[in-house]
Design a protein around this nucleic acid. Structure first.
Lengths: 217, 217
DNA sequence: CCCCGCATCCCGCAATCACGGGACGGGCGA
DNA sequence: TCGCCCGTCCCGTGATTGCGGGATGCGGGG
C-alpha cells in the first residue's frame, strides 16, 4: 500500500546520467513514492539487489544499457527480487523489443519521450495492479496479438477428418485411431489420405505440423 | 483529423437504453467528437452500416448484447466499415473475452465502471493511433503474452537431434532428412529413435506435435 | 590406461505406411 | 430422378518406419 509513512521504493536503471538524475528527482518529489537507489547498468543493480534488505517494488529500466541489456536483465531482476514490477522506459518502439520485454515479464512499457508526469502516473498504475503502456505501444501489442491468431484457415476438412487429424496430432498410429474411433483401419487410411490431399502434404509429420501451426483440430 | 468543422463520427452499440443515451450525450458534448448514431444491437448497426454514406471512424461496442454477441460482431463491423476502430466497452474482464475481442480486431478495451471522461479520452487515443485499455485489462493482456512464451523446455536434445527434429517438423521422410543432412538413413533412424526416447513418444506425429507445442527446434 | 557414457554411424526385419485402385449407401441439389 | 459428394469399407504393393541388435570415435574419471 502506498502511504506517506511508507513510500513505495522505486529503483532506476538508466545509463544516461542526467536523465537518471531527472527521474530520481521526479519520483522523489512525488507523494508516496521514493527513489532510494539508481544505477547505470543492470550488473550494479543486480549486485545491490543481492544484498539489499529493502528491495524495490518497482524498477524503471532502460533497454539500451552498456553491458547486460535491459531485456536480458528483466528475468534476472525478477529472480533477484521476487514480486518486483518492471517498467521499461526506453526510446525503442520496435515490435521485437516490445515483444521480448513483455515475454521476459515487464509490467509496463513507456517511451522516453513521455512527459515525466506520465512516469509517476505509470508507477502508481503498476502499484494498483495496472500495466501502463504508451498508446502506440499498446496498439502494437494488440496488433501482435491479432497476428498471433490468424484466420483459423479452412481446408474444408470434414468432421471425421478433423477427428482423425486430432488423434494423429496425439501421436496415435492408424490401428489405434481406428479402434479409438471405432472404424476400420482402411477407413482411417482413406481419411488420412484425404487429409493429406486437403492439407497439401504427403507425410504424417507434415499434416501434424500444419494442423498445429494453423490451429486446426 | 479531428477538427471542429468535421467532428469524428462515433457510433455506439449498447443495449442498455439509459447507458447508451448517456454515452451519446458525453460524446456529443466532447469537442471534435460526434455520436450521430447509436444502436441496441449489432444487427441494426450492421444494417445501418450497409447503407450509410457516412461510416463512423470509431465504434463503441458492448459485448453482452441480445442477438449477435459483440465479440462475433467485431469482424463483421470491420468488414462492413473498413478502417473503423472498435473500442469494446463492457463489464467483462475475463481473459477469454479479452482475448477473443483483441484477436477479432478490437482496438481498445474499456470497462463500464470507467469514468465517462475516460471514454472520450479513449476515443481520442484511438484516433491518434493508440490503443486505450483499462489498467487491469492491460495487465491481463501482458500476462497472456508472457504465458504465450513459456519455458523453452529442454529435453537434452543434441544439436544433431534438433536438426533432425526440425526436418521432421517440415514433413521430410528419413531418406530426405538423410540427404539433407548428408547422413545415412540408418543414422537418421537412430537419431529419430533417440528423439523419441527423450521426448517420451513413439511416433513421428507425437514427436512433431511435442516439438511444435513446446517450441523446440 | 581402461572403462564408461555419449553422439554418431550402420544392418536387417517385421510392422506400418502411403497410395493406386474399387465398391456401397445415404443425403442433397439440380 | 440422376448425379455427386461424403463417409464408410476393402485389396495389394512397394516404400518407409520402429526397433532389435552392433560398431566407431571421443572425452572424462577412476
Amino acid at each position: 500500500m502506498v502511504t506517506a509513512a511508507q513510500p513505495a521504493r522505486v529503483w532506476t536503471i538508466e545509463d544516461n546520467d542526467s536523465y537518471r538524475r531527472a527521474i530520481m528527482r521526479v519520483v522523489d518529489a512525488a507523494p508516496g513514492l521514493a527513489c532510494p537507489a539508481a544505477f547505470a547498468n543492470c550488473e550494479d543493480a543486480l549486485a545491490a539487489l543481492a544484498t539489499s534488505r529493502e528491495p524495490p517494488g518497482v524498477i524503471l529500466l532502460d533497454i539500451g544499457l552498456p553491458g547486460m541489456s535491459g531485456l536480458d536483465g528483466i528475468p534476472r531482476l525478477v529472480a533477484a527480487a521476487p514480486g518486483v514490477r518492471i517498467i521499461v522506459l526506453t526510446v525503442f518502439e520496435d515490435e521485437d523489443k516490445i515483444f521480448r520485454a513483455i515475454c521476459a515479464g515487464a509490467t509496463g512499457y513507456l517511451l522516453k519521450m513521455s512527459p515525466v508526469g506520465e512516469i509517476t502516473a505509470a508507477i502508481r498504475d503498476v502499484l494498483a495492479g495496472g500495466s501502463p503502456m504508451n498508446g502506440r505501444i499498446a496498439r502494437r501489442v494488440l496488433e501482435m496479438f491479432t497476428r498471433l491468431a490468424p484466420p483459423p484457415a479452412d481446408y474444408g476438412l470434414t468432421e471425421r477428418e478433423r477427428g482423425v487429424l486430432d488423434l494423429m496430432v496425439q501421436g496415435l498410429i492408424k490401428k489405434e485411431i481406428a479402434s479409438e474411433l471405432d472404424l476400420s483401419v482402411h477407413t482411417v487410411d482413406t481419411h488420412i489420405r484425404n487429409i493429406y490431399e486437403k492439407l497439401h502434404v504427403h507425410t504424417r509429420s507434415g499434416a501434424v505440423a500444419k494442423a498445429l501451426k494453423e490451429k486446426l483440430v
